[in-house]
Computed example of a mutant assay.
Amino acid sequence: MVRFTGPDSLSARAAKPFLAIALTIAALFATASIATAAPAKTGTVSATGANATPPVFNCSYYSQVPFHDVAFGCAVGAGVVRVYLLCSDNSRIDGPAMYAGYVYRFVLSCPGVPMRTISWESLD
């Protein structure tokens, strides 16, 4: 005889897979929200000038804990410029030489240590 109430009832057996799926989905959303709540560093590096001698550029960057990798998006208006990272072990990681009139997207990484600072240099 099929029971309609109690722990062995048809409704209790049917609800178990749905409960397992709901808990799995909730765990996935909880994990995603924890990952997106991690501290991040964002900012811009830029220089502007009236003539073409100093470079004219604007770079946005993004890095997340533990700050090994930094993603850049740079637009260069005039001159030639290079962005670089100074890592906490005093190593320097150079980005590409960026020429006027182009938009660049790249990632720079400190080898196993966090970055200390971001800077740039003119290549003209």
Rank of each mutant, 00 (worst) to 15 (best):
G79I: 03
A22K: 04
S46G: 05
D94Q: 05
F4R: 02
T5K: 00
P55S: 10
L85K: 05
S122V: 01
L85T: 07
A38I: 11
V45W: 04
K41R: 13
V113P: 03
P39V: 08
M1L: 08
V76G: 11
S63V: 08
Y104I: 07
D89P: 05
L23A: 11
Y104W: 08
S119T: 14
M1Q: 03
T24Q: 06
V56N: 15
A78M: 04
C74T: 15
G49L: 03
S11I: 09
P39N: 10
A30K: 07
G101F: 07
A32V: 01
M1E: 08
D89L: 03
A78H: 07
S122T: 12
V65I: 14
F29K: 07
A47M: 13
A30D: 10
Y104P: 05
S91K: 12
A75H: 08
C110R: 05
D94N: 14
S9M: 01
A35S: 10
A14E: 13
A71Q: 14
G112Q: 02
A32L: 12
P54K: 14
L23D: 01
A14D: 09
P96Y: 07
C87A: 08
P111S: 12
S122F: 00
C110A: 09
V56L: 13
Y102T: 03
Y61F: 15
D69I: 02
D8P: 00
V45Q: 12
E121F: 03
D8E: 09
A20V: 03
Y62E: 08
F106A: 01
R3Q: 03
Y99G: 02
L86W: 00
C59S: 15
G6I: 02
F18L: 13
P7Q: 06
P66M: 09
R105A: 14
R3L: 06
G101I: 00
H68S: 07
A100G: 07
A37G: 04
R13Y: 04
V103K: 11
T24E: 03
A47V: 07
F18N: 11
V56Y: 14
I34F: 13
Y102K: 09
L19G: 00
T31W: 09
S33L: 13
P17H: 01
L23V: 05
A97P: 05
R105E: 14
T48Y: 12
I25G: 01
L19E: 12
D69G: 03
S88M: 10
V81A: 05
W120N: 07
G95E: 10
A35C: 06
P114T: 08
P54L: 13
V103F: 06
V76S: 12
K41M: 09
Y102D: 11
A32D: 06
S9V: 08
R92A: 04
V103E: 12
A37E: 01
F4W: 13
G6D: 05
G43P: 10
Y84P: 04
A14P: 00
P39G: 02
R105Y: 13
G79V: 01
